[in-house]
Every structure is written in structure tokens, then in C-alpha cells.
Design a binder for these strands. Structure first.
Lengths: 209, 209
DNA sequence: AAACCCACTGTACCGAAGGGCAGTCCGCGA
DNA sequence: TCGCGGACTGCCCTTCGGTACAGTGGGTTT
């Protein structure tokens, strides 16, 4: 596993040399031939067309980090969107650089604390992180109280017999409720029910076990 | 630096114990008094009011990760919004858990590859470099080719008869494969199978060809 | 050649799941 | 008062799901 550093500027950064003593300076053209899956590559943002380069390296399995002398949230976004896993100030202390290096080599994302909130907050919502969560909750509104309770139990993997016992009713009644749920939600059986509502159980009122 | 684990469920996860042998199970009330700045805390999403707990722990300087049996983009978002630095499947292989642990202790963010794109934005081009990091793929690698195919179909809600038709085999054979899957993954029936692998079927769709 | 894994199939059994038909109780609105 | 919907139940039936027992055939390893 090798570490590479790419920059348009001819001089390397002392901090960086101090942080990664075994790393190698390399040109944007060379890196394509040298690097292998799992390598770490740090790209300075003064590099020609760095977003494209980052995307390419990432696609080929490298853990890519972007460095900048003048960090900005906008540029951090561009870096991350192109597959970079880290975005740091080029003059960060060596310990911090090593830390970021460690993180990205382990499939993590590293951004400066002050940008953290915007990275996790902004994009996610913009992309609709909550996409189909609402529709499902609405679907459940069509169910009666009892039907929801039965559905909840089924979503926990309980059999009809178990549901009957936990709700204090007969297995036949459980089947009756479930039948209503199936037709209301337009599913065939309990399998398709859990498939449709999987991961959504937190949205249903929790009976408290 | 200590590692804590918080869950409402009475049983701890073998995977987790295997990953962090020196970690300690702790209750939501105890953790406030015990933990100090820099500690790592893993919170299961079955914990009462976990988002608030996560926010509080994060505010006090802990590296917090959230675990779930049924990961979803929406829940990952909630976790990160509340200050968690990792969001992982509770049944992830130990190496992966240790990896995530390492990342969050170094101020990084760790999310499953399939959620990465949504956290970071843009299209999912992270696939190439991350294929070996998929937790569920790990889980399924113990299965044979045919067993995976059957599992895939079942995870789409197909009945045994339908699976048989789509794979061009007898229903009896489907049952045979499925039985093997059950025993290998330690589940009782298809219900448990779906509950365990739901939400990840997209990830196991392609390794076929 | 023997041992083994994988894919595949049949017969048979039993419990789970789903649903039709019928009926009871209760509360609520017209 | 009647009608209606929700919750609840019994009986009965069919299909589905899971498994035990019992193989066959192909491929690889020892």
C-alpha cells in the first residue's frame, strides 16, 4: 500500500513530508500507471482539473484526499462529490494529516470539524435522504389501531400464533386483521408486507414489547 | 480510552463482542457517568430515544456510532444529524466494525458503501473501490452460487413456486437450497431471512455476473 | 478409487398461513 | 331504531413453507 502526493506546484509541503515520510511525489500522468487498488493519494487543489483526476483515481480503488491552502465548504463538496474521502487544509499539523490518512484508508470520510455539520446535513437532505419514508407512514394511516398493532408484530418476525399471544387474541383474529392489512396495502402475504415496510417499523407506534 | 455498547435488547451481538473484546455493555443511564472525552460508544437503534442519547454523548466528546439490524438511508441520516460518526449494520463482520471504530476514533465518518453516495452527494460512483467492504456481501459469501440466487429471489418477495419458475428448477430444489441458507445463516425461516437482509437486496443483486 | 461438495429431484408429512362463511358484541351516527 | 364498521371468534378448507428420508449425477480433492 503506497501513498502518493500530487501537486502542480513544484515544491512539496514540509508538513506533508513530515506526516508521510514514506510517501512519493508524483505527477498526474504517472499516477495512473503506478497506483493500485488500496493506495492512498493526496491531491492538491492547484492540480489541473483535479475533480476529474480525483474521480478517476477513486473509481480505480484509491483512497483519495484533497488538500487546499484555502479551504472552503464549496470546494469540500466538489471534492467529496468526485469521490474524495478527505478534504484538509494543506498546512494541517502532521498528526492531523496522519489521522485523516488513517481514516480514508479505512473507508471513512474525513473533513475538518467546522465543515462537518454542512457535509452531513446539507447533501443528505438535498438528495432526499428521507425519500420514501413519508409515503409509508401515510399508508399506515389507512389501517385501524388493531391492524397496526398486528402489522407491527409481524414486522418483528412474529408468527400468527405469537402475535395472538402477545395481543391476547385468537390466531383466527390475527389472520382476520392481517387479511385486512393485506388488502388495504395491496400486498399478497406477510413477506411482501415486511418487504414494503422494512426499516420503517420505528415509524409505527411502539407498543413497548 | 474505553469502548461502550448500548442496547435495549438484553442479548449482545456475537459479532460485536468478537470485534471489541475489551468493550463493555452499558445502560443508557450509566453511560453518562462513565464515559469521558475520547471514548467510543456504540448505540443500537432499538435503544429508547437513541437520537437524543447520541446527540448528548457526541456533545460530551464521545465518538458515537449507531448500529441497526435494518439499516435505512433515513435512519442513517438521523444518526449523522445527531452527531453519530458511524452507521453500520449490527451484523457486520468484526473487521468491518473495527475499521469503523478506528475511523470514528480519528474524527472520521463511516457509513456503509451503499449509503455513501447519499451522504456525500452525487451518483454512486464509490462502488468500484468499496466492493470488499460490503457487510452483507460478507454475510452471503458463505453461500453457494445457487443459494445466493434463491436468497435474492426470496428477498424480492417471491414464493417458492415463483423462485422455481424464474430459476428453471423444481420447487423441491428451491426448498433444498433455502434450507441450506437457513442453517448457514442461522435463521429459522424466510421471515427471519428477510428481516435480517432487508434493505440490502440491491447490494447482492449484481455479484452474479 | 474413495471422499466430498454441489445441484438437483422425488415422496411424504406436518404445521403455518390465508381465506370463505357465519356469527356475536359494541359503539356511533342517521 | 336501524344500519354500519370495528373487533372478535369458530369451523373448515386449500395452499404454502419447512423438513426428514432417499436418492442421482457431475465435479474436485486426496
Amino acid at each position: 500500500m503506497a501513498i502518493y502526493f500530487i501537486s502542480q506546484g513544484r515544491d512539496e509541503i514540509p508538513r506533508w513530508r513530515e506526516a508521510f515520510s514514506d510517501a512519493r511525489m508524483i505527477s498526474p500522468r504517472e499516477v495512473g500507471a503506478r497506483m493500485v487498488r488500496g493506495d492512498g493519494v493526496w491531491v492538491m487543489d492547484d492540480t489541473q482539473d483535479w475533480p476529474t483526476l480525483v474521480a478517476e483515481l477513486q473509481r480505480r480503488g484509491a483512497a483519495v484526499g484533497v488538500m487546499s491552502y484555502s479551504p472552503s465548504a464549496a470546494e469540500a463538496f466538489r471534492a467529496l462529490e468526485n469521490g474524495a474521502r478527505a478534504y484538509v487544509h494543506a498546512l494541517s499539523p502532521p498528526e492531523l494529516l496522519r489521522q485523516a490518512q488513517l481514516v480514508i484508508l479505512n473507508q471513512g470520510i474525513w473533513v475538518p470539524p467546522e465543515l462537518m455539520a454542512r457535509v452531513v446535513g446539507g447533501t443528505f437532505r438535498a438528495l432526499g435522504g428521507l425519500d420514501q419514508a413519508q409515503p409509508q407512514a401515510e399508508e399506515l394511516q389507512a389501517l385501524t389501531e388493531r391492524e397496526r398493532a398486528v402489522t407491527q408484530a409481524v414486522l418483528e418476525g412474529q408468527s400468527n400464533k405469537e402475535v395472538a399471544r402477545t395481543l391476547g387474541i385468537t390466531e383466527r383474529t390475527v389472520k382476520a386483521h392481517l387479511g385486512a392489512v393485506f388488502s388495504k396495502l395491496g400486498v399478497r402475504d406477510r413477506m411482501q408486507l415486511v418487504l414494503r415496510l422494512a426499516g420503517q417499523h420505528t415509524a409505527i407506534a411502539d407498543p413497548g414489547q
